[in-house]
């Protein structure tokens, strides 16, 4: 359980994060979306105990980031937006080093590292020097490093940046797997489509303010409560439009030409079925129905002005 409470960070006159609050439970994959400079990295660094908040705090499984940073550190895996690995160490040694730092008992290290390498698909590289790995592999190694101590919370800052599409897809799969393992995962990105399909929870941040937070559906519905139903009929669309205009949940009806009715609708699925039912019973020949719901991209563009600090 992660509770972020009114987290705020000021850099002199500039307030990079303006009192952000949210909470996540195990298994949540939280997509943290915002343009460059919105305050994602600052927020993540505060949660990871690297940056002292100006005010506010966050509590992870009972440990406060300000009062018990060491306890928090034991429970988190943090992957910075920019990071460097060491030269002159091998993949295995690198992981063993971090396992030691995280006080993984030496008897278990071998198995854990084997598993983590397996999970991140680096088994074949276990004896390679880390500087010889490709960018995507280094990214995965950094993630592997975050996993050796079985953290409850993963903070991944722009993990997909600089990866080719193939590596991105692999990474998404891996993150989804981590969610299934019951970890809380926070993934930040300034690219929307990257996150929408595997996060069960999103937050949109701009200029240090969390503009929206919730499940993807909630967020979309919160911003745009109505969806558009595009109903195609064989003929007589204007009359069909009039027929449904007074029904529950219908905000606005337009007809285009003789064969298309567009309904701005905010009702339940039940209500949606009723509309079709009514049209059919009134003798209109319904050919098809298409729902057009705003997606995260629309929401994002609608919410944010593109301004940065």
């Amino acid at each position: 359980m992660l509770e972020v409470k009114n987290l705020r960070k000021e850099y002199g006159p500039l307030t990079a994060v303006k009192g952000i609050s949210f909470s996540l439970k195990p298994g949540d994959i939280f997509g943290f979306i915002g343009s460059n400079g919105a305050g994602k990295t600052t927020t993540i660094r505060m949660i990871s105990t690297l940056l002292e908040p100006t005010s506010g705090t966050a509590v992870l499984n009972g440990a406060d980031i300000i009062a018990n940073p060491m306890d928090v550190r034991r429970m988190i895996g943090y992957m910075p937006d920019f990071f460097g690995l060491y030269d002159d160490v091998k993949v295995w040694e690198y992981l063993d080093f971090f396992a030691a730092i995280y006080r993984v008992p030496s008897g278990q290290r071998h198995d854990i590292i084997t598993n983590v390498l397996e999970l991140t698909d680096l088994t074949v590289k276990k004896d390679a020097f880390v500087q010889s790995l490709s960018r995507g592999m280094q990214q995965r190694l950094c993630l592997a490093r975050c996993l050796v101590h079985d953290p409850a919370l993963l903070l991944l800052d722009e993990p997909a940046s600089g990866l080719d599409p193939r590596a991105r897809a692999d990474l998404k799969e891996l993150i989804a797997e981590l969610g299934r393992m019951g970890k809380i995962v926070i993934v930040s990105s300034h690219i929307l489509p990257e996150l929408a399909d595997f996060c069960n929870c999103v937050g949109i941040i701009e200029r240090g303010e969390l503009l929206a937070f919730g499940t993807v559906d909630d967020v979309v519905r919160g911003i745009q409560p109505t969806r558009e139903l595009e109903i195609r009929v064989l003929a007589d669309a204007p009359n069909a439009a009039r027929a449904v205009s007074a029904m529950n949940g219908v905000h606005e009806v337009r007809s285009t030409g003789e064969d298309t009715v567009r309904v701005e609708f905010s009702g339940t699925l039940e209500g949606q079925a009723d509309i079709i039912d009514k049209l059919v019973r009134d003798g209109y020949r319904v050919v098809g129905l298409r729902e057009q719901q705003a997606d995260l991209e629309d929401v994002f563009l609608r919410l944010t002005t593109g301004a940065v600090n």
């Binding site: 990871s48 105990t49 690297l50 060491m70 550190r73 034991r74 988190i76 943090y78 910075p80 920019f82 990071f83 460097g84 690995l85 060491y86 971090f98 730092i101 995280y102 006080r103 950094c142 490093r145």
Partner: peptide
């Protein structure tokens, strides 16, 4: 050098 290479953060977030 660790700051420059940006491996420093990884040490700082560890319980060490």
């Amino acid at each position: 050098g660790e700051r420059e290479r940006r491996s420093w953060d990884l040490l700082l977030v560890a319980p060490i």
